[in-house]
Amino acid sequence: MDTVPLIDVRALVDPSSSPQARREVAARMGAACRNTGFFYVVGHGVDVGLQTRLEALARDFFARPEEEKQRVRAGTPLHGPNLFPLEPDGLGGAVLAYMAALTSLGHTLMSGIALSLDLEADFFAARYMADPTVLFRIFNYPPGPEVDAQGLPVWGVGEHTDYGVLTILKQDDAGGLQVKTRQDGHTRWVDAPPVEDAFVCNIGDMLDRMTRGVYRSTPHRVLNRAGRDRLSLPFFFDPDWTAEIAAIDSPALKDAGADDHAERWDRQSVHSFRGTYGAYLLGKVGKVFPDLRAEVL
């Protein structure tokens, strides 16, 4: 597959939809998870006005002087109350409202993924995500050179997979997201350009593990070629911090995928891991930020 499919999920969002309509959407989601690991969703029901307000407030914040932006510091890694800047006024409220809306959407999309695996719609909510680990970030990618002095690309974010179960991304119209696809034994990078009122969704390492590699976490990267700031708002909808992550027993997963650790960007197997999602996440974050791991442990 060399394109990212677009899926209308309103049958999952609307409680009056028929079971057949829900299963049809779920089947499309399952095909996307098997083939690309990425898909756009429309018909998601997230208020457009809220999205627009949050984007405007985020741009306001990033346009402020560096010393003002640096006043917001984190405390204990990955836990504790959110810290919001005093200005622009309303940013904190918009972020919390947006997180609540996307938490609801996350549960809805996971019900579709459950149905695509011939499981009960509440499978993930009941077993792994009753109290999901929710992380939300607002990234600003400033414009810069496409290549460095050696002629190598200057990535906003290099090749990686996401750690958890599901990422729901709102991106502005600058573009720059690229997805690594497989076809006929070959890999290639394809663009995932912005689509109006659509979120880009991708599955992470934990869903890869749960499905024995049938649903693959797909590498992706960002290169800002727009010549202006790029705003990216990823929402990570992941398992409970203390959830023990194990493979799912389902007839839909009888043809398990091969362990692809030799091909992965980090050369690590997501299938050999044993333990909680919190331990997995801290291990990954600790490799990127060693000091942060030392503080929390």
Score class of each variant (00 low, 15 high):
F136M: 11
F123C: 06
G144Y: 04
G156L: 01
H107L: 03
E146S: 08
A121E: 15
G175I: 02
G185C: 10
L169W: 15
W189A: 10
P132S: 11
F136L: 06
V190Y: 02
E159K: 03
P132Q: 06
Q178R: 01
S116I: 06
W189Q: 03
G156H: 03
P193K: 01
G112C: 07
M110N: 10
W189R: 01
G158S: 14
V190R: 04
A192I: 10
V190T: 04
A130E: 15
A125I: 10
A126H: 07
A126G: 06
P132R: 05
I138N: 05
N140F: 00
T187N: 13
D172A: 14
D191I: 04
E120T: 13
K180T: 01
V154P: 09
E196N: 05
F124R: 04
N140T: 08
G112H: 10
I138V: 10
G156E: 07
E146K: 00
S111D: 07
T161P: 00
H160W: 03
L169R: 05
A130N: 12
V190A: 06
G156C: 05
L117D: 05
D118H: 15
D173P: 11
D148V: 03
L166S: 08
L135R: 08
G144V: 10
T133S: 15
E196T: 14
Y163S: 15
F136C: 09
P153M: 12
H107G: 06
G151F: 03
G158T: 13
L177V: 11
F136Q: 09
F124H: 05
M110L: 15
D122C: 11
H186Y: 04
H186D: 14
R137Y: 02
L166C: 12
A130I: 02
F136R: 01
Q171M: 13
R188Y: 00
